[in-house]
Simulated assay, not measured.
Amino acid sequence: MLNVIVVDDEPLARKGMLVRLAAFPELKVVAECANGPDAITAIMELTPDLVFLDVEMPGMDGFAVLKQLQQQINKLPYIVFVTAYDQYAFNAYEVNAVDYVLKPVESERLKAAVDKVLTYHAASDNQKHKDQLAEAVARLTGDQADIILERLDKAEPVVSSRFPEAISIKDSGEITRVPVAEIDWVDAAGDYMCIHTRDGQTHILRRTMKELEAELDPRLFVRVHRSAIVNVHTIAKLQMLSNGEHQLVLTNGQSVKVSRSYKDRVKQVFSH
């Protein structure tokens, strides 16, 4: 709902405008003013979203009101000028008014002006939400906010995946790309790791477990031991042994020990 102020030096004109505006559930009139100085005071205090501003007022006309407001506040409300003379239309657009309506105000013409304001406001509000989202995502991911806004405009995923689809493994002068989705589980062996894949192969990777874990999507891989990571889609069973310890049984029959410090993390996999 937009807060509205009606400004007109003629009491009957104000009353007529209030009656017509009551037909719009999106609008709430919060004040009515009979002259320019009162309008400036009310706008400064109430910060309305929309002002219907009479152009022809004694002492300070509508253009003078707008000029003074521009000097005193940073964000102007939407302005719709109300005038008895069509020649003011050019000036109304020149000072960035959203629209103007002629007296006597016709309901259909007023509706067109209100619809234009609502369209402007929806676009502005949507942009504000986009900006806020971009800033939040930028803080979370480290991506630049303008890049995130560009993705929003193109209806692309806001957060680009930071997890690689494959891992490159160097061995004997060759580089093998192992698809992450094909990894069943990983175990550490000294200063290197053994990556066990779905086709039964084992690849040797000279990286630390911590480094590899940072590259694997935590929604797909779970750390089950200081020296083991498992693909959640390969987990068949969680077993409790007679000595109180736990182990996983994978779909390929492989057993992987679960350490106490990672037990709760593993149990979360079975809660989904």
Rank of each mutant, 00 (worst) to 15 (best):
L18C: 05
Q247C: 10
Y120G: 01
H233W: 10
T176C: 07
W185V: 04
S161Y: 12
V269F: 08
V98Q: 02
E174Y: 12
A84H: 00
V7N: 02
K263L: 15
S261G: 15
A136S: 14
A136R: 08
L12W: 05
A34F: 13
G36D: 00
V101P: 00
V19L: 09
D199K: 11
K128P: 02
L220S: 14
T119L: 15
A214P: 07
E213M: 09
L133C: 05
D8V: 06
A228G: 08
A181V: 15
M44R: 02
L102A: 04
L140I: 14
F81N: 05
V178L: 11
V137H: 01
V98R: 03
K28F: 14
P37G: 03
G16K: 09
S261I: 15
M240K: 13
E94F: 04
Y78G: 05
A228C: 06
T119Y: 10
M193D: 01
S168G: 13
V7D: 03
S107K: 12
A39R: 03
K67F: 02
Q247A: 13
Y262G: 11
K75P: 01
I183E: 01
L53C: 01
I5H: 01
D115C: 08
S168Y: 15
D9W: 04
L118H: 04
Y192H: 11
S242K: 13
M57E: 03
V4M: 04
V105D: 01
D9N: 01
W185M: 07
T141M: 08
N252G: 15
T208R: 10
D9H: 01
F81T: 03
H129S: 07
K210G: 02
R207Y: 11
E215M: 12
E182D: 15
A31H: 09
S255V: 11
Q70Y: 02
S261R: 14
S255G: 13
K257P: 06
V249W: 10
T176P: 06
L76R: 01
L250P: 03
K111W: 03
V98L: 00
M1Y: 12
M209R: 02
Q68F: 03
V80P: 03
A112T: 12
E94N: 07
G62V: 06
A166M: 11
Y192N: 00
I79L: 01
I5E: 03
L238Y: 09
T202G: 07
V95F: 00
P164D: 12
L2W: 06
Q68M: 09
Q72A: 12
S242A: 11
L212G: 05
D99P: 00
G16M: 07
S124Q: 13
V158H: 11
D49K: 00
Y192V: 07
V19F: 06
V180G: 11
L21N: 10
D217K: 12
P48V: 00
D8H: 08
